[in-house]
Computed example of a mutant assay.
Amino acid sequence: MKKTTILIVIFLLIGLKINAQELTCSDFKNGNFYVPADNETILPYKIIRNGNQQTEIIEDPKNILGTDYNKTAYEIIEWIDDCTYRLKYDESKMELTEYQKFLNNNNGVLNELVKIEGKCFYFKSTLSVNGETQQMTGKICKE
């Protein structure tokens, strides 16, 4: 009787593990997300993704930047695979700053998933300019 009980418990635990939802890269392709503030990101911001389109909404209700700073940026996502994409600003939806034009002219920013923890994924962003590579890291979380 004890062996039967132990076997049932083992099968239940295995079943729970198999059915436990673990996020994958593709879970971050569409939906509403946020980027929390950290050492490299001064203000948290919201991201809305739908296929190859991304909207970033940055608000500064505490006036951290010293002015009324509320900004929306529109971007185009070029998916390389489920975990890697290139991001460029969408000039058909907004007037680009000189910096945004510079990023677009240098083939945009390459973003790669590094790891998934809970409902967040950690990424590495890379920009190559004249053979020199600049990197930034951060995380994006599902709302």
Score class of each variant (00 low, 15 high):
residue 4 T to F: 09
residue 6 I to H: 06
residue 6 I to P: 06
residue 8 I to R: 02
residue 9 V to D: 11
residue 11 F to V: 14
residue 13 L to H: 12
residue 14 I to A: 14
residue 15 G to N: 09
residue 16 L to V: 15
residue 25 C to T: 01
residue 27 D to T: 06
residue 28 F to Q: 13
residue 30 N to L: 00
residue 31 G to F: 04
residue 35 V to I: 10
residue 36 P to T: 08
residue 39 N to S: 15
residue 40 E to V: 14
residue 41 T to I: 14
residue 42 I to F: 03
residue 43 L to S: 06
residue 43 L to C: 13
residue 46 K to W: 03
residue 48 I to E: 08
residue 53 Q to W: 10
residue 54 Q to C: 09
residue 54 Q to R: 13
residue 56 E to T: 12
residue 57 I to C: 01
residue 58 I to F: 00
residue 58 I to H: 00
residue 59 E to F: 09
residue 59 E to H: 07
residue 61 P to V: 12
residue 63 N to C: 14
residue 68 D to R: 15
residue 75 E to S: 03
residue 77 I to T: 02
residue 77 I to V: 02
residue 78 E to T: 13
residue 79 W to K: 08
residue 79 W to A: 12
residue 79 W to E: 03
residue 79 W to N: 06
residue 80 I to G: 04
residue 82 D to N: 08
residue 87 L to R: 09
residue 87 L to P: 07
residue 87 L to H: 11
residue 89 Y to I: 09
residue 89 Y to M: 13
residue 90 D to F: 01
residue 91 E to T: 12
residue 99 Y to V: 09
residue 100 Q to Y: 07
residue 101 K to L: 08
residue 103 L to R: 00
residue 104 N to S: 10
residue 106 N to A: 06
residue 109 V to S: 01
residue 109 V to D: 08
residue 110 L to H: 09
residue 110 L to W: 04
residue 113 L to N: 08
residue 114 V to T: 09
residue 117 E to V: 05
residue 119 K to W: 08
residue 119 K to P: 15
residue 122 Y to W: 01
residue 123 F to P: 03
residue 123 F to H: 09
residue 128 S to Q: 13
residue 128 S to P: 03
residue 130 N to V: 15
residue 131 G to Q: 02
residue 135 Q to T: 03
residue 138 G to Y: 02
residue 141 C to N: 03
residue 142 K to I: 06
residue 142 K to E: 03
